[in-house]
């Protein structure tokens, strides 16, 4: 892909740091809004980023969200160093979650995260290695749609 990059930024996410939960996603949302993208697309990107960010916080040791904006798409790569996912098909099923009872009490672990990401993106690719980590590659087509 030799598309011109209009914007690129990396956001570090620390595993277990619930106090900053959603901060990277809020920053990404503001950036996309400031780039003048269509609000509906910005909201979809925000949902996908939030779920990816919280997955890193809940399950991984450390990770990052890479945001890349080109004239035709928003591309988000969420990559972590963490326990990985043994059965991706099972993890994708709505309602399935490995969240702890403490996380569930806070309203996490609905088992909707990956499904929410998939619903809000145009392309969704997940790869994972047990004991190493997980990588999500997401794109949302913008086709230059502005606010």
């Amino acid at each position: 892909m030799t598309e011109a990059v209009s914007f690129q930024q990396e956001f570090k996410v620390k595993g277990g740091d619930f106090s900053r939960g959603g901060e990277a996603s809020c920053e990404i949302k503001n950036l996309l809004r400031d780039l003048g993208l269509d609000p509906q697309l910005v909201r979809r990107a925000a949902i996908a980023c939030y779920e990816a960010e919280m997955n890193i916080i809940m399950y991984a040791w450390q990770g990052q969200l890479d945001l890349l904006v080109t004239p035709h798409r928003i591309r988000i790569i969420a990559e972590d160093k963490g326990p990985g996912i043994a059965d991706i098909k099972q993890a994708m099923r709505e309602g399935y979650s490995t969240a702890t009872p403490e996380m569930r009490e806070l309203g996490f672990g609905a088992g909707m995260g990956l499904a929410n990401i998939k619903k809000n993106t145009d392309t969704f690719r997940i790869t994972s290695k047990v004991g190493r980590g997980t990588r999500l590659e997401l794109t949302i087509k913008t086709n230059g749609r502005k606010a």
Partner: peptide, 10 residues
């Protein structure tokens, strides 16, 4: 506190 990010993002 995590409820606030949800309200902001949505």
């Amino acid at each position: 506190p995590n409820i606030i990010a949800v309200a902001v993002l949505k």
